[in-house]
Design a protein around this nucleic acid. Structure first.
Lengths: 235, 235
DNA sequence: TTTGCTTATTTGATGCATCATATATGCAGG
DNA sequence: CCTGCATATATGATGCATCAAATAAGCAAA
């Protein structure tokens, strides 16, 4: 899953650091707004700055990190506009993946999907949100994998990288019903009904992401309110 | 257009080299299979190896270049399977862009699209395939721009980066009728008919890319034939 | 002449020294 | 006590030396 992007890539220290940071982002260990320092990371990881710089540059390139000014590298904040754009893209691309997956899926692959859903149910029952979050993501990527579209997998991995810090923040609030939308997907894939699978994934992204969108909208509202009151207070 | 990816990015030498190589790829100045050497490029550009290495690593990451073994960096060959996958993705994503563009397009933006088509006609009349290729690409990116989806623009730029060497190779052969499919797109956008625009772009990608697909299939056939005869000859 | 081993060269990876600049700190003047 | 400038510090950018491994070249032995 982690090395979805570089199946053929030569393994160097930079890649290792890159994957390390990717996992940290996806697992929400890096919060939006948090600053990263190359020297500090290098010291922590026991390498020189070069591989860390390589990794950070790669993440900046794909906008998983933002370099606001020359020496200010941060985990970017998600905006509502950006989220809506990404959501529209995800519906198209994950819809495509689900459609192809429905066409291709073998019995073993369907069993794998069922197993993921089952484990997710268990994680929710255990109240293990981190594991639930991870399993939710694995389900989505299993679809791309079954679709047999490695290039698409790379694109989607980069997209999920963007949403990692966000999802980890919000998942606990209302992530429990996120799993519900996976059942129609599973049903459509069992029936090898591509269009139905695409619609089901679309529902999952729209409804499951509703909590995230509300969280973002609330955050932008309080931010603008703070700004207004601050401007008023300073006057 | 060129810096679609890094609107917010700090400008360093590495980025400059990156854009230089991007343009070279898109304009077909780097042929599939061609090998790149960091030291050689650095000498040619008058910089140290560091910025060149940064740029190349970025291109390897997004698979616009391939690092087959530890010190073998090449412009990758496109395969039929990969082309078909990219084509399916493009239809979804550029369809989305066309749909949004049709909804949003102002009179000036429509005029810009018309101007691009007009210039493309002129380029074809002049037999200037390089310019025609460039204008074709600019039309597609103008749609994403009008759609107002900066993140999508980044994704599509990376996709076009992959196809750059290929398109430049094949465009001369049958690129003249590529422009024909832009007129229905234009009509749909003038009518602010999103679904029609998406269908028109899909037609453009499918039909306009037909020549490319045939070229690829022929290349893979001769490659496998060569392999067979070579194996037979050695036996 | 051919084959296999040794050596030289090429080339990306890594570490590190230095630079330039942005930010922070602190001191002086009001 | 506050403001503004000068210095100090922090930090990414850049260049470069060195390493390691892969490939090429050359030489020797059969």
């Amino acid at each position: 899953m982690t090395d979805a992007l570089d199946t053929l890539e030569h393994d160097n220290l930079g890649s290792t650091v890159y994957h390390l940071l990717c996992n940290a982002l996806i697992q929400g260990k890096l919060k939006p707004g948090e600053r990263l320092k190359i020297r500090e990371l290098a010291a922590r990881l026991g390498t020189s700055v070069t591989p860390v710089r390589d990794a950070i540059l790669r993440l900046v390139q794909e906008q998983a990190l933002a370099m606001k000014s020359a020496r200010d590298i941060r985990v970017p904040h998600m905006t509502v506009a950006r989220y809506l754009e990404i959501r529209a893209i995800r519906i198209k691309l994950e819809g495509l993946a689900a459609e192809m997956a429905a066409q291709n899926a073998s019995a073993e692959q369907i069993a794998l999907l069922e197993e993921l859903v089952r484990q997710n149910e268990q994680a929710i029952a255990d109240g293990d949100t981190a594991r639930g979050c991870d399993l939710n993501q694995r389900f989505h990527f299993a679809l791309v994998d079954i679709a047999g579209m490695p290039f698409l997998q790379g694109i989607l991995y980069r997209i999920w990288l963007q949403m990692g810090p966000l999802i980890a923040d919000v998942y606990g609030a209302g992530g429990d019903d996120m799993l519900d939308f996976h059942y129609p997907v599973l049903a459509a894939i069992r029936a090898h009904d591509g269009p139905a699978a695409a619609r089901a994934i679309s529902d999952d992204i729209l409804c499951g992401g509703q909590v995230i969108l509300q969280h973002l909208q609330a955050a932008e509202l309080t931010a603008s309110a703070r700004q207004t009151s601050a401007a008023g207070g300073e006057d």
